[in-house]
């Protein structure tokens, strides 16, 4: 009965969604409102005013910087949330029989995989940094680079054979919380620099050089902060 109800509900929802999408203005055509109104303005002025060849980055860091600020805050908050919640459940409340204690169990890893991971790590890290730093010119940016960097760090942690260590080793604990908060903090700094340089909060400086520097700083903050958050999430889940 419940299954049937669920099916009906999903079917109805699907029908509604399809109805909406069918009635939307045709995507991809040049006269749909999506392309004629605000986006057109971005395309026309984005390169000059936005200060980035990559329009996506221009929108993210410039036109809608406050959105991006909110997004990095969400990511940071997610980590805080997991840290706050996992520590309280405690290791004794686990249930089930198939649990693997990742702290003490050594994952049987093929030496080949382990070797390849360690071999690839510097290249992945370089790529991640590249994506972050060139985000304003090429596809990519802080978010993408940060996730790649985070994935690399997690891979290392998984396959380096050092799974029994706690997370105090890579970074000094005093620094760790600063790096995790890097995303929101660079935007806080942007708020101030914007005020100093151009008189508006969340605005980039007008001078091209400084604008590029600030953008790179933002991308690095988003990226490294994001990577730190992801690693933190992984560790919190593994240990909590």
């Amino acid at each position: 009965m419940r299954k049937f109800l669920a099916l009906v509900l999903i079917a109805a929802l699907g029908a509604v969604l399809i109805a909406a999408v069918v009635n939307l203005p045709e995507p991809g055509t040049t006269d749909s409102p999506v392309h004629t109104h605000v986006s057109a303005g971005y395309i026309k002025g984005g390169h000059e005013a936005g200060g980035a060849d990559n329009l996506v980055t221009a929108v993210l860091l410039n036109y809608r910087a406050i959105d991006t600020f909110g997004e990095v805050t969400v990511i940071f908050t997610a980590l805080i949330a997991v840290l706050a919640a996992t520590s309280l459940a405690g290791p004794t409340e686990r249930s089930g029989t198939q649990n693997i204690d990742l702290k003490t169990t050594r994952v049987p890893v093929s030496p080949v995989v382990s070797f390849v991971v360690r071999l690839m790590a510097p290249f992945i890290a370089t790529f991640a940094l590249f994506v972050m730093l060139k985000g304003h010119e090429l596809p990519g940016g802080g978010f993408q680079g940060g996730v790649v960097l985070g994935a690399m760090l997690i891979l290392l942690a998984l396959f380096s054979g050092r799974t029994d260590k706690t997370d105090d080793e890579e970074l000094p604990p005093g620094l760790r919380n600063w790096i995790r908060a890097a995303g929101p903090l660079v935007f806080g700094a942007l708020g101030l620099t914007g005020l100093v340089f151009s008189g508006w909060l969340f605005s980039l400086p007008d001078h091209p050089f400084w604008r590029e520097m600030v953008m790179i700083g933002l991308e690095l903050g988003i990226g490294i902060g994001g990577a730190a958050v992801l690693v933190g999430l992984f560790r919190a889940l593994r240990e909590g």
Binding site: N99, V148, A151, L158, L233, F234, L237
Partner: peptide, 28 residues
């Protein structure tokens, strides 16, 4: 391409790892 990169790294990479970590705790 921006969205594609994010999707690849987040969706296929990190999320899966985090899910697996959780599964290791709660049983599969």
């Amino acid at each position: 391409p921006d969205v594609a990169m994010t999707e690849a790294a987040v969706g296929a990479g990190i999320t899966a790892v985090l899910f697996f970590t959780a599964i290791a705790k709660i049983g599969r």
